[in-house]
Design a protein around this nucleic acid. Structure first.
Lengths: 120, 120
DNA sequence: AAACAAGCTTACTAATAGTAAGGTTTATTC
DNA sequence: GAATAAACCTTACTATTAGTAAGCTTGTTT
């Protein structure tokens, strides 16, 4: 049995169906800034401008876009904060369930160092 | 202490340095097709055309580009297969160390279903 | 009431990805 | 042994996505 098949088996699914879900998922969370946004939301609910301040280099345009996508895919909910026209974003259970993924990446970084940003 | 700080602590690093490495790493592996290529290479060494055949939808151009990036960042090595002008790509230890990340994503998929590809 | 901040949106440019074709070297087939 | 095909790229071009900068609206502060 191939290693990839074992991985899929251990994840409890068989065949290309699992692979497709995996593909869709990894491409979704691989979108630029997505992982970092999820990472920061693991802290708990945050306001738009908090995220904007914490995530160095992200633009309003993409932060808004990514937050909308997180909402649309059920990773996060947007909530109006009472008293004021402020909003807050919070991960859903589905979103919080991503913590092990983030954690495993942090572990990898610890053991293997970073990826530099330079292109070949 | 914030959750993100705890995550960083548990990964054995402190401050924004760890966050930057994390950022660089997640953006690198988040590039389109990168995760899927790594996933397929977890099987062991593979030829170019094997990857091309297994990864549905990828083009020669991007497969070549991603493989070069994996090489340049020390995730994989390219080897000439003796007898023939064939090449083979194999993950390095650094690359194989990514298995837990892939595994955690598969676990997430099992528990939470896929992300559909449709945009909002 | 003037000025400022939050949370977007819009318009435009730059970078990245997708598509299709072709090129070169090796293997295969007639 | 010439023709064909397959492996492994490369190039040129289009389409999609990201980055930059400005502005707009509602609400808050002074």
């Amino acid at each position: 049995m191939k290693k990839t098949e074992e991985l899929i088996q251990s994840a409890g699914q068989a065949g290309s169906g699992a692979c497709d879900s995996f593909h869709a998922t990894i491409e979704f969370i691989g979108k630029r800034w997505m992982g970092i946004i999820i990472y920061h939301l693991l802290d708990g609910p945050k306001r738009y401008h908090e995220l904007a301040a914490e995530i160095d280099g992200i633009s309003d345009r993409l932060l808004t876009e990514r937050l909308k996508e997180l909402e649309a895919h059920g990773f996060a909910v947007k909530r109006a904060v009472p008293a004021g026209r402020k909003v807050e974003y919070e991960l859903t259970d589905k979103g919080y369930a991503f913590e092990p993924v983030i954690r495993s990446i942090l572990t990898w970084v610890k053991q293997n160092g970073s990826c530099t940003k330079d292109r070949t």
